[in-house]
Computed example of a mutant assay.
Amino acid sequence: MKIGELAKAAECQTVTIRFYERKGLLGAAARSDSNYRMYSKQDLERLLFIRNCRSLGLTLPEIRRLVEIHDNPSIDCTDVNTCLDKHLDEVEKQMQALAQLQEELRRLRSRCAVPGVSAGCGVLAALSKTSARQSCESK
């Protein structure tokens, strides 16, 4: 199948396929006599594997390692669990950071309960300080 057909089957854009080829996650495609990239069912399966990994937020190095393990069935899959455990830790840290950000935004928003002229806006005043976080925390 040609690159457009592969993109359609994998529900992605052709630039995505070329990107994964450049990064070495997807092998270089065979070429037809007229120099079109030609892909196989295995290429589609690999692309879907990569896209599933990306949908979980895995990084390219993490995906590269999972592809390596996937391609070598005799390798111990302990690294798969290690990879996911590390990624899960990162997600939990991001969730904590987002929860803190959410609370800071709520505190900041509370500085302007009754909107009026912008000259008296507590939100704008807090954002004008050296650090909006400091002004939110000091309230």
Rank of each mutant, 00 (worst) to 15 (best):
H87Y: 10
M38W: 01
S135H: 03
R111D: 10
L98E: 05
G24D: 03
A28Y: 04
L88I: 14
H87V: 13
L108Q: 00
Y39C: 12
L48W: 00
R64E: 11
K23L: 08
G27L: 07
Y20G: 01
K129T: 14
K2W: 05
C83T: 15
M1V: 12
S32D: 08
K41F: 09
A29F: 10
L88G: 06
E45Q: 12
E68H: 15
C112K: 01
A10D: 00
L44S: 14
I69M: 13
K8F: 02
A7I: 02
C112A: 11
A132D: 00
A132H: 02
G122H: 08
K139A: 13
M95W: 03
K2H: 06
Q13T: 08
C12W: 05
A126F: 06
I69Q: 11
D33A: 14
M38N: 08
T59P: 03
G57Y: 08
A126N: 02
T16G: 01
K86G: 14
D89V: 07
L127N: 04
S32A: 11
D71Q: 13
S135A: 14
S131F: 09
L124N: 09
G27W: 00
D43H: 14
E103R: 04
Q100H: 09
S74M: 11
S40Y: 01
C136M: 14
N52Y: 07
A97K: 01
R46D: 05
S128A: 15
V114N: 14
R22Y: 02
R54L: 15
A126T: 08
D71T: 10
E62V: 13
S138P: 00
A97D: 04
D43I: 11
C112E: 14
M1R: 05
R64C: 12
L60K: 01
T14K: 03
S118M: 12
G57S: 10
L101Q: 09
A125P: 05
